[in-house]
Design a protein around this nucleic acid. Sequence first.
DNA 1: GCCAATTACTTGAACCCTAAAGAAATCTGG
DNA 2: CCAGATTTCTTTAGGGTTCAAGTAATTGGC
Lengths: 166, 166
Amino acid sequence: MILDSETKAVELPEDHGDEIRLWLRLLTCTTLIEGEVRGRLRERFDVTLPRFDLMAQLDKVPDGMTLSDVSKRMMVSNGNVTGLVERLVESGHLDRRTSDTDRRVQVIRLTKAGRAEFRRMAAEHQTWIADIFSDLSPKDVRELMRLLAKTKGSAQKSAQKRALQA
Amino acid sequence: MILDSETKAVELPEDHGDEIRLWLRLLTCTTLIEGEVRGRLRERFDVTLPRFDLMAQLDKVPDGMTLSDVSKRMMVSNGNVTGLVERLVESGHLDRRTSDTDRRVQVIRLTKAGRAEFRRMAAEHQTWIADIFSDLSPKDVRELMRLLAKTKGSAQKSAQKRALQA
DNA sequence: GCCAATTACTTGAACCCTAAAGAAATCTGG
DNA sequence: CCAGATTTCTTTAGGGTTCAAGTAATTGGC
């Protein structure tokens, strides 16, 4: 921070080129991998990535989750989940019922067929991911995990700050 | 690889949990930051992230690019670019003309107003990114850059393999 | 018990995105 | 020169995504 001739606070334009380049590289990596996974899911199982992700969330919980839970876990909007779930119920992968204790709440879970189908996809999906990251040593993986955890924390803090100002 | 009692090749299910966790963390980081940037762009400039990204590509080249170039650089489909460009031409940010030497080719560039608007947005955008990554030390940034470069290489190799098989 | 605030979800408009098919222009080998 | 292949872009169908507004159910203060 610098004080100019009229004694007002002035920000000098600092150089944030490194951070921008880091962000672009992070984005490129994710886009690349996401596209690859999307393509393989489509080719092999004729399923979209969002549907796969939703089923992955549900596979972890035998008793199902509410739409809000799913929305938070997937970091997507409520309206988005409504549509996704609708199509997956339609195709028989999901079971949906209104909660007994709160009639606003919809509880969804995988059907037997949906779970079987997901397990089949997940097994292959795992090998794709392993292949995609295969040039990284175990040490690289650990180090990347650590740095991404730090990045996530930093980003959350920044998002938190903004949320409070608004 | 293992040979079973009938001497057929069998793959044991290996544990790829670390790679999956790494991929999920990478995806979480990107989604988090992307959402934050999207929200701020909308709030401050009422512009979408894809439009900002397209303008960023064009800001780097005074003489414009073809739609195919943009499509490759942004890693999105051709049809997607067609629509995006249409809307940005409509709003006066972009200028679009058919190439003199090849009438299939459309060359787009920023208009004067478009470039000015982008520069204004980019300046703020930079500070957001810097803030989002502010917990990372310069060393962290360097190390992350290195590991992501390696990841990108690995992913590209994997994608290449698949492309050849198909 | 009642009403205001909150919560959970749905709907609608606008946009983003892909894959596949199609149209137009160019290139290439004979 | 010209027919087939290729390249560039557009179009279409089907989703995915957000935000904002709206509906229904629940909660909490009084």
